[in-house]
Simulated scan of single mutants.
Amino acid sequence: MNTTGASGVFAREFDALGRAVEVGFAGGRVISVSFPPETPADAETDHDLLDRLGEYLRGERDEFAEVAVGLTVPTDRRDVLEALRTVPYGEEVSVSRLTRLAALDPDDPDDLELVTGALNENPIPVFLPDHRVQGGPYATPGEVREALRRIEGL
């Protein structure tokens, strides 16, 4: 199914995670990702991005770099999350390194607080891969994060 430009909520259960992935779209942009225990009854299950996610969870390398996202967060947090998106598949960074990637000072407590806040409130886990950050915090639930790290060999 070609779902370019779709709006709505799409979800599917994935054995690799032992739960569903629910993706919210507005105007074809991903605006939210969550991990409910099962597919919500009101969610559509047929979406190209869910197909790709299933392939990724089966071990196919995918960085989802061209997936359009719609971030509705303050600009400074957006900068952090966009820097997070540059961390390649199968690689991890420390919070300090992510802080530098976001052009912030890892020795400045306010900058570190900004980075950890952005990670903790990441609205689009997987596509903004907080599971690639050592020592978190994370928006991705622990068991999901561990599965994603295993898949990527981290």
Rank of each mutant, 00 (worst) to 15 (best):
P109F: 06
T72A: 14
D108W: 06
R12L: 08
A139P: 03
T140Y: 01
L119I: 04
F64N: 01
P106S: 09
E121R: 12
A16C: 11
P36M: 15
P36C: 13
P141D: 05
A6W: 09
G70W: 02
T72E: 12
D111A: 10
T75G: 13
Y138Q: 03
A65N: 09
P109Y: 07
G117N: 12
G135H: 03
A11H: 08
G27Q: 08
E82K: 03
T140I: 07
S7R: 13
V144E: 04
G136S: 06
Y56E: 05
V115R: 01
E82Q: 07
R78D: 11
G54A: 07
R85F: 12
E44M: 14
G8P: 02
A118E: 03
L81A: 08
G70D: 05
H47W: 05
A68S: 14
S34M: 07
T75M: 09
D15I: 03
M1C: 10
A83Y: 01
P123H: 10
T72G: 09
T39L: 14
V144Y: 04
V67R: 00
R150A: 07
R61W: 08
P106D: 10
T4G: 10
V23I: 15
V33M: 02
V93R: 06
I151R: 01
R85Y: 07
D111Y: 06
E146M: 04
R85T: 15
S94F: 00
G59V: 09
A6I: 14
G24T: 08
N120F: 15
L128H: 00
A43H: 07
G54N: 08
L49W: 01
G24P: 08
E22N: 04
H47V: 05
F25A: 10
G59A: 09
P37W: 08
E92V: 13
F35C: 05
P36Y: 11
N2I: 15
G135R: 01
N120P: 10
A26K: 15
L119H: 00
L49Q: 04
D130N: 09
P109W: 08
L128M: 09
P40Q: 09
G18K: 00
A68T: 11
T116C: 13
L98D: 00
P88G: 15
V80C: 00
F10I: 11
